[in-house]
Design a protein around this nucleic acid. Structure first.
Lengths: 174, 174
DNA sequence: TTATAATAGTTAGCCGGCTAACTATTAAAA
DNA sequence: TTTTAATAGTTAGCCGGCTAACTATTATAA
């Protein structure tokens, strides 16, 4: 899932120069936006690295989690796609690769021949259970610097950003 | 640059169930981590969408910015790669596509035949200058919900996260 | 009942990340 | 000076996103 993290970020001076030309530029906001991207990407990079060491990617990990919690540890590709928020085409690829690794089993349904059952295997279970403790530990490490008040604070700020993003999205959809 | 945004995020109940098995799980931190990813991805999705409407991607946009500010609006691919924080292979692809669009001009150096000059064209300039006002406006919209104090607050929190990420990264590199 | 529409999944091909292997050129060392 | 290193860039091929076009099956409507 990994994005580059552009290194040469504009400093205050360069932003000021731009502001001379583009009066609508709000330096503080632009700077915050870039900082937000930067922080996320550095964090995500480390997270992806840890996943990769375990033969995982974030989407593969999440799919394992979905199956883990599913009744009979079984789900349809269409349901996985919906839960994951990715297209069926993407899920189709992921599932195929996971089957090759022996983490899941595919079997066609008898009632609806269009449908497919995706079931977690023992191997898949092990891969997941082996990674979970590391997962929680990494997340703790990455956010280690925040006190519980700060966690609450950040949570509130994120909620606000979600609201404005949501608002903007809705305006665009009109 | 676009990532999926997984839809079925674990709620408090599911996290509690996991905590029964994995005592090292810190629900608040895990929830924050997922919220952070969610917020970033929703925001980025809208940003990418706006870029796309202008025939741009974030990396293409940033490269245009680098060239825009460069002396003689010219840079070497290796320098672009370094500034962008992406590999030369990636930049090679991007540059090729941008040349096809007529946004840049490639010319081999006379002094060092290995080197390549990448120069912004008039067309490239127009594409950039056309997008810039929209760019600033979108960023403002996406972060519209934050007061100036909240901007400062968030900026500080991001800095802290950068610190813990940095610390974790260094530990991993040992 | 038969034709049409909706649904489930796959495939092909694009994009932008990546690594690894390659060519060409220049610089450094023997 | 000649061999070896380093450097600049490209290419091939993997990954995981995407859309659009496809097959097969099931459901709906004429």
């Amino acid at each position: 899932m990994d994005n580059f993290t552009f290194v040469d970020r504009p400093d205050n001076q360069r932003l000021q120069l731009m502001k001379d030309v583009y009066s609508e530029l709000n330096s503080d906001v632009v700077k915050l936006f870039i900082d937000f991207q930067w922080t996320y990407r550095n964090m995500q990079k480390q997270y992806d690295y840890a996943l990769d060491k375990n033969g995982l990617s974030e989407s593969r990990f999440i799919i394992l989690m979905f199956l883990y919690h599913a009744p009979n540890q079984t789900l349809l590709p269409s349901v996985i796609s919906e839960k994951l928020g990715a297209t069926r085409a993407t899920v189709s690829k992921l599932i195929k690769a996971m089957e090759m690794k022996g983490w899941i089993l595919k079997s066609t349904s008898t009632t609806d021949k269009r449908s497919l059952s995706v079931q977690l295997t023992e191997t898949g279970n092990h891969v997941l259970e082996n990674f979970l403790p590391e997962n929680f530990s990494i997340v703790n490490n990455l956010l280690d610097s925040l006190s519980s008040e700060e966690i609450q604070q950040l949570s509130n700020l994120l909620k606000k950003i979600n609201e404005s993003t949501q608002k903007y999205t809705q305006e665009m959809e009109k």
